[in-house]
Amino acid sequence: MRPQLLVRILLVLAIGAGLGFATSWAALRNGVAFDLVAAGPWVAAPRLASRARDPYAAAALARAGETPFDLAEGLVFVARADASGAKLDGACVYRVKGPTPPARFWTLTLTDQQGRLVENEARRYGFTSTEIVREETGGFEIVVAPTARAGAWLPAPADRRFALTLRLYDTPSAAAAATLQADALPQLLREQCL
């Protein structure tokens, strides 16, 4: 074999492998998954606990070490953006309001965009449906802000983007997740920013 040819083959293998690893790493880091259900800014992966999940979801899950909800337990929605599509920013004030799909309980949790809880002086990381005083319409309102607010205040990290997780425990919507419309889920409305 001519040395020049050997060098070319080695280059093809090395660059190819490098590209392959880089794209895999990027896909896992950015949470690429194909069987997601979106309703407005809320995204769910209802088949994450099942054998039918896609290979990207399975790989990301193995890396994250999470134990996802089975549909019999409930359904989990994550939002990383507000109603307008802008990323949730800890320096801004958001009003989370409106309906939740029928469920025995729900909880709303604030984390960073990677899903880690965020330290705050109030030691408030989320709300449960029981804690929230419902309006007569059956809706609720939570204010997400970096500084204390009256009412149901969920502290946000002023220096970072964040994510909100809505967990519906024991919900008849689990099997019909794909048909949920944005107006069945809480609205994420941005108010002023610091």
Partner: peptide, 18 residues
């Protein structure tokens, strides 16, 4: 050929991760 190698490595790493 480079792209093909990249594709194979990409698919293999995703599938083997779990």
């Amino acid at each position: 050929a480079t792209l093909m190698v990249a594709g194979i490595v990409h698919i293999a790493t995703i599938l083997i991760m779990p």
